[in-house]
Amino acid sequence: MTRKEIEKRCFEEMQQNIPDREALWQRIEGSLGEQPAQPEVPHIRVRHTGRYIMTAAACLLVVVGASVFWRGGTAKLETNHAPMMDNAVAPAGDAPVYDDAAADEADEAAEADEEDNADQEISDGEAVSPQHSAGAPAMDAPAAAADDADADWEADCDADFSADEPAGEADVQDGAVSGRQSLEQYGPKADDPIPRRDLLYTQDAAFDPEEALARTELFVKAQVTGVSQDPQTGIVTYALSVLETYEKSDVPAPYELTLRTRSPYTMTEQSQYLLTLCQGEDGWQLVSDSTAPIGLYADGTMLVHSEWTLLEDYADTRIEDGTGEWWIISDPEALDVLFDAWTRIP
């Protein structure tokens, strides 16, 4: 029985005894109430009228006047030009001296102007200018924050639900990101100080993907968290955090991995890879030094070495570097092909 036949049989069983559509609709329709009124989205806005501002300004003048009066009527209204501090403690040079009263007054006036402007612009339904938004955060912040949150949420949703198109495909096809740029951005870098390539094995031409899959007991998607190299032996030690595992049988999946290898296919810190592992004497290890890890990018594309010949049909872009040809693959189905081939191996 093929996969399609299994699916069809499942579907037919689930389809049995489907209730009469009209009868069920009548039942639903009969229970529908009035559409509840949608609550208005609360919009918090501070609004000051002109009368309030006039009153506030008048009160301020009274307070300032009283202050001047209580200082004996001889003190001048202090300004930025008037010294307020003793010379002993005054800053050197012509540093401006802060005047509380005048500054408060100026702030109040400026704030009043801004609020007036904001009210005018908002009530006119016009967009608030960036400068104005910066000047009146109390008024615009909630709406702006909500907009930001919406934008973030929509962006998240786009990321989650726009999956009908393979991620990254557009970029690759549009040529906006060339293969070379991608490799340089994500892939192994020839000038990385660690590991030193001259201490690693040269590429092993005897790689056999079927053999590698046959030896694979576990696929892991992991992120490199640390890289170090023994300068004597050239052995590179990778510390990895396991993100996902794909196993054929019940094997205890690791959460952290330490892999030691002299593979020429170096991995870079903080990058993610799909690795083929088998059990060794000291725990999980790469199935062989000649098996290239599959680089996994944040946009869903993969960097696959041409050794993985069974994925050749999926190559969007081909890149050459010192370790051979690499393919950028954006179709996630490619991994299914890999896993499918793996599961078919007894």
Partner: peptide
Amino acid sequence: REIAAVLGRPLGTVAWKYRNAIGKLQKAV
């Protein structure tokens, strides 16, 4: 892809588990 979004699981995992499931059903039948 929609299942991956509903379950909050990676697409590869979903496809992989589905294949496994169908394989098991095939074998059982």
